[in-house]
Computed example of a mutant assay.
Amino acid sequence: MKMAELGGRRLHYRDDGTGAPVVFANSLGTDLRLWDAVLPHLPEGLRIIRYDKRGHGLSDCSKGPYKMGELVSDVEALLDHLEVREAVFVGLSIGGMIAQGLATKRPDLVRAMVLSNTGAKIGTREMWGDRIAAVEKGGIAALADPILERWFSAGFRRTDAFHAWRNMLLRQPVEGYLGCCHAIAGSDFYATTAALRLPTLGIAGSEDGSTPPDLVRETTELVPGSAFEILRGAGHLPCVEKPEDYAGKLTAFLRAQGHV
């Protein structure tokens, strides 16, 4: 386990391999294990960097609410700490919003991005306000079942592996979960993402109830020349349900950028 001290905050991260860097950012309510099943199917010769965002996993859980700019600054500081430049940044859900923010703020850090199951804007302030109120009253468990229905297809919810993901969600710090809910609620990247000019791949799950394919496609198409893929039979976390297919889409994109 590695911890980076970044100006008074500590982020847990993994830094594996050497070569061209690929950075992975997780969804709300998950930690860096989100990508475990994908990594064995990626080509050799990559430097794989994963991290737990603020308030998640083993990273520090500072008092919320958080702003998206803070989450972007966290990974910016981590990549500077690791002396990383020109990475391909893969972000899922809130991780995809972080990707958009980082690519806008620090184009030297991001040469290409993968926007997975995300949007330039996700939901409404009212929707997030309702979720925040429900979690404040009853904890994450109060919303766990509807959240997991959006995360995973019906078939995956009948597997043994599903219960591990349910436990991961329930064990996230409530303060960190709520902090990131506030960050999503206050974010709208439509204008800034439309100004980006870098290779971009969008990935959606056909059964995604949190960021439906049309939202992911709309966001991806803000960037001229972008590509878009749908993984059939997968929900909000296709890297969990369809890891080989997900890795195949990602590998093809990496090869197209000369990053492998």
Rank of each mutant, 00 (worst) to 15 (best):
A154V: 15
N26H: 14
R14G: 15
K63W: 10
W151G: 03
V22S: 11
F152W: 06
C181S: 06
S187C: 14
G129W: 02
G248C: 05
A25G: 10
H259N: 12
A20N: 14
L6N: 06
I132T: 06
T124R: 11
L231E: 00
R85L: 12
V72S: 01
K67I: 14
A164T: 13
E241Y: 02
A25R: 00
A103H: 01
R197F: 10
L32N: 06
R111N: 09
A4C: 09
G176V: 04
L170R: 07
E244R: 13
D60H: 03
S62W: 09
L178V: 12
R197I: 14
A154M: 11
L178A: 08
V114W: 02
E5Y: 10
L237W: 02
L39F: 13
E149V: 15
G179K: 03
G29F: 01
K137V: 13
G55A: 06
A185K: 04
A185S: 12
V260L: 11
C181W: 01
P224G: 11
A194H: 10
C61H: 06
F253L: 10
F228I: 13
R50C: 09
H81I: 11
A227Y: 10
G29P: 00
T104K: 11
P199S: 05
T251P: 01
L6R: 09
D52Y: 02
S116V: 11
P224S: 12
A185F: 05
L39P: 02
F89A: 02
T30A: 10
A133I: 10
R50T: 11
L198P: 01
T118C: 11
E218L: 11
S210E: 15
G45N: 02
T211Y: 06
E175Q: 14
L39M: 13
V135P: 00
G95L: 03
F189E: 08
D52Q: 06
S93D: 07
A120I: 07
W151Y: 08
S73R: 12
R111F: 08
G19N: 08
